[in-house]
Design a protein around this nucleic acid. Structure first.
Lengths: 151, 151
DNA sequence: TTAGATGCAAAGACTTTGCGCACTT
DNA sequence: AAGTGCGCAAAGTCTTTGCATCTAA
């Protein structure tokens, strides 16, 4: 398990390796991504970055996220109609999104192993397990909303 | 397998049953959804509707789609960053979306049966199989882009 | 020095909403 | 006749882009 510091260095190293420049804004975005264990929207990232460097604009954050993703540092996923979420590429996982309460649960990528193999053999489709977002009803809402489960 | 006509009648019947009115625009949207075997975006639906009734506005189409969905007539899914797609609730299926070429493949819901059971027992999460959209690389792009698969 | 990165603001894509008139029932 | 549904246009989200300026290397 990599430390926050080594993660940070690794990110900056990749940026330099791509002949890109290391800027204050990029350091901030990297910090925020590393410190947050969970997925963040671009807006959340922007707000946290601005907590330390108020002058960083949303458009810059989008540009940095795009660059980081191109460098394989982060990945994003679309969890329904709302904004996309971003997280470090290292933490590969899928998402369960509750259609009722909007809660999201992160689940290990290995839960998709079987499905992944099945899709590959049936359709030749290689599943991107970073990017999986599944809709449904979570335990809580299920208990609350269906006292008598439909026949 | 229901005929187009019976599908159409069924839809109008549900609309009436909900004390909603049957209008020209609703008939057109129903026709388009029935005639198209595949998923359509709101914009595609609007264009096809306007092919016959040019005065129907996009906002009306959105309102009708919302109503139809509330009545269980159709379902929608989000296939990545682009617009949502809609289709009749009868044709339950999941989607494979290619990250490179954008192609989407519809696959039967039963492909998710195993995964669905597994998620239910592990997380108490009831998967909505209408709404599944998986990202990855399709056969074509895979063949084209990776002559030598990475180690 | 100098080309990439940024801030600001405007534009874009998709969707929702307000308002007064038309059409369904 | 009564009230839902509609067209039009404006507003709302989320994201991208243009441009002049600033800054990392």
């Amino acid at each position: 398990m990599a430390s926050a510091q080594s993660n940070f260095d690794e990110i900056l190293s990749r940026v330099r390796g791509a002949a890109k420049r290391v800027t204050v804004a990029k350091r901030r975005v990297a910090e925020v991504l590393i410190e947050s264990g969970t997925d963040l929207t671009a807006d959340e990232i922007t707000q946290r970055v601005q907590g330390r460097s108020p002058d960083v604009s949303p458009s810059t954050v989008y540009r940095i996220l795009e660059e980081f993703e191109a460098l394989g540092i982060i990945v994003h996923a679309h969890l329904g109609r709302a904004a996309a979420v971003y997280h470090l590429a290292g933490t590969v996982h899928g998402h369960l999104v509750c259609e009722q309460c909007g809660a999201t649960v992160e689940i290990p990528a290995r839960d998709f192993d079987k499905l992944s193999r099945s899709l590959a053999s049936s359709y030749g489709f290689v599943l991107d397990r970073h990017h999986v977002a599944l809709s449904g009803i979570c335990v809580v809402c299920r208990a609350a909303s269906s006292p008598n489960p439909a026949t």
